[in-house]
Design a protein around this nucleic acid. Sequence first.
DNA 1: ATAGGGTTAG
Length: 708
Amino acid sequence: MLQFLNISHLSSSALSRNFFCFRSVLGRHSFFKSRYIHSHITYATDNEVVVDSFDRLLLHCSGTQHCKQIHTHILITGLYRSAFLAARLLSVYSRFGLVMDAQKVFDIYPLEGIGNLLLWNAIVRANVSHGFYKEALELYDKMRKLGVWADGFTFPLIVRACALLGDLNLCKIVHCHVLRMGFQNHLHVVNELLGMYGKLGQMKVACKLFDRMAVRSYVSWNTMVSAYAFNYDCEGARKIFQRMGLERFEPNSVTWTSLLSSHARCGKHEEVMEFFGMMRSRGVGTTAEALAVVLSVCGYLVAPNKGKMIHGYVMKGGFEAYLFAKNALICMYGKCREVEDAHKLFLEMETKNLVGWNALISSYAESGQCDEAFELFTQLEKSDGYPVMTPNVISWSAVIGGFASNGGEEESLKLFRRMQLTGVMANSVTISSVLSVCAELAALNLGREIHGHVLRAMMDGNILVGNGLINMYTKCGSFKEGHLVFEAIDGKDLISWNSMITGYGMHGHVLSACSHAGLITEGRNLFDKMNRDYGIEPQMEHYACMVDLLGRAGLLQEASNIVKNMPMKPNACIWSALLNSCRMHKNTSIAEETAAQISHLNSEMTGSYMLLSNIYAASGRWEESARVRISAKTKGLKKIPGQSWIEVKKKVYMFSSGSPVQAGLELVYRILQELALQMESEDYIPDGDSSLEQNVNDGEMSMLVEAQ
DNA sequence: ATAGGGTTAG
C-alpha cells in the first residue's frame, strides 16, 4: 500500500521510524517542519499514518490561511480521496465560517466514495450550523435519491433544520422518516425531536414523546426545560425541573440556566434573582449564559449594584472572552443609566458584533441621548471591518424609537424613510414607534400611509401595531378609524382598552352634539367590560377617562362620585378633568367641593389652579379668583404654554401660545384673524376654548388643560 | 463526529 516514490529505497522499519518522527513533529503543530517532511512523502495515497498526521494538523490549525495551505498539501498528495480527511477539512472550513470552501471539498470528492456517511454528515452539519437549513434539507433529499441512508448523526441535524425553518409539514415528514427508519428509540434523535416540537409550540406532543422515552439523558431533561422557557411557560419549566430531581437527575448548570431564562421571559424578575441565589448556594457552577440572563434582569430592575456584582462573576468565571456576556454587560449598564461604563466596555472589546453595537446604540437612545445614538449608528453604517456589519432592523428601530420618544419627531420620520430606501424591512416595533410619532404630530395622512404599509405587510394582526394605530387615529382626530381598528383586534390587551377609552374621552365633546347618550353608554360599557369580561383592573388613566367622559357630558355628580370612590388617590389628571368639566358646565358647587380637596395638594397642579381661578371668574367671584392665582404664584408654579399642531401637505406645523408666527403659516393666521372678526360681527362671544385672539393675547386662558 | 443554555429595538 505504501507508494512513496522518492523514499521507496528506505526499508520498512526505516519508514515507520520516519512516520513516527513525522507524527511527533505534527503533534507539536509545527507547520513548516511538517512541510519539509512532506516534501519527502509526496504522491502518497491512502495511508492511515499520514492521514492521521494531516488530521492532527487540521485539528490544530490556527486560521483560514493555515487551513488552506494544508488543503493544498492534501490535494497534492491525493489524500483528498480519504473520506475521513475530507470530512475533517470540511468541518474545519465550516468552523472558520467558510461554508463555500467546505462545499467545494464535498463537491470535488470522488463519486465512487459518495456513500460515505461521515462526509454527508459533515456537509449537512456545516450547512445547519450556518443557518442554511434549506440547503441542508436539499442535501438530505439528494442522499435519499442516491440511496444513502441517514443514520443517527444525520437525523438530529435534519430534524433541527426543519425545526429552525419552522415548517410544520416538513417536520412531520421528517418525523415519519425517523419512524420508518427505526430511529424512534434513538436517544439523540428523540432529543432533537423534543426540541423540534418545542420550537413549533407543540408542547403536548413533546411531552408525549418525552414520557415514552425508555432512556433519558441530561440533554432530554434540559431540552424539555428550555422548550418550556421558549414557550414562555415558567410553570411548566418549574414542574419538569422538580420532576427531574425526583427521577435521580440532579439539575445541572444548564438546567438552572433554562429555569432562569424561563422566568426572565415571563417577566418574573424577582424570581430570577432568587433562583440565581439558590443556584449559587447549592454549589451549581454558573455559566456565561446564566450570567447573561441575570444581567438582563438587573437591567430591567435598574439594579446597578447587583449588576456590578454579576460583572465580577463574569470576570471570575473567565467569561470576558464571550461576546454575548460582554454584550449583556453593556446592555445592563445602559439600562442602569450608566452609559459611560457601557461605552467603556464597548471600546475595550477587540472584536464586536452587531448585538454589541445595537446594545450601545439603544443605551444612548433610551437615556435620551439621541445624538450620541445617531452618531454611533452612523459609525456602524460606515464601518468596513470583517465580518461586514450593516445596521439591521434593531439598529434602525433603536434610533428611530429614541428620536420618537425624545422630541426628535422629524429626525425619526426622516430615518424611517431612509430605512425603507435601504431595504431593511420594518417590523412591528419600528412601526409602533413611527405610529407614535404620527400621533404626536397629529400627522393623519402619514399615519394612514403607514396603516397601508401595515396591511400590505400583513402586520395588522400584531397587537403592538394595532394599539399603535388606535392611538394614532384617536390622537389625530379620527375616532372612527381608531374604533374600526379596535374592533378588528383579536385578543385586545390592556393597552388596547387604554387607548380606546382615552379615545372616547378625547372625542366625547366632539361627538356629544350628535350621539351624546349613545356615546356615554358605550364608554360606560367599555369601562365595565374591561374588568368584568377581561379581568383587567381599571388604572388611574381609566378613571381619568371616565371622569372626563362623564364630566364633559354634564354628568358632574356621577363624575365626582367616581373620583370619591376610586380605589387609589386621584392624580393631577383626574382633578383637572373634573375641574375642566365644572368650568364647561359652569358648575361652581362641585368645583368648590373639588377645590377644597385639592387645596392641600402641592403637586404640579398649575392647570388646576388656573381652571379654578377661571371658574371663580366666570361666576363673578373675582376675589376668590385672584386668591387662587396668587396662591399658585407663591407656590412657584409655572405655566406650560398650550400647543397645537396641524398637518399641511405632509408637513407638520406647530402653534404655541405667545410664540411668533412660524414661517409658512402667515396665511393660516390671516384666515384665523378673519374668522375671529366674522365671529365678532355676528355677535358670537368667544370663550376661552375657541378664541385664538384670546389664547394669544391672554396666555393664561390657554392654560385650560385639555384632559387627555 | 452528534445533543441542552445567552445578549440587542417598544
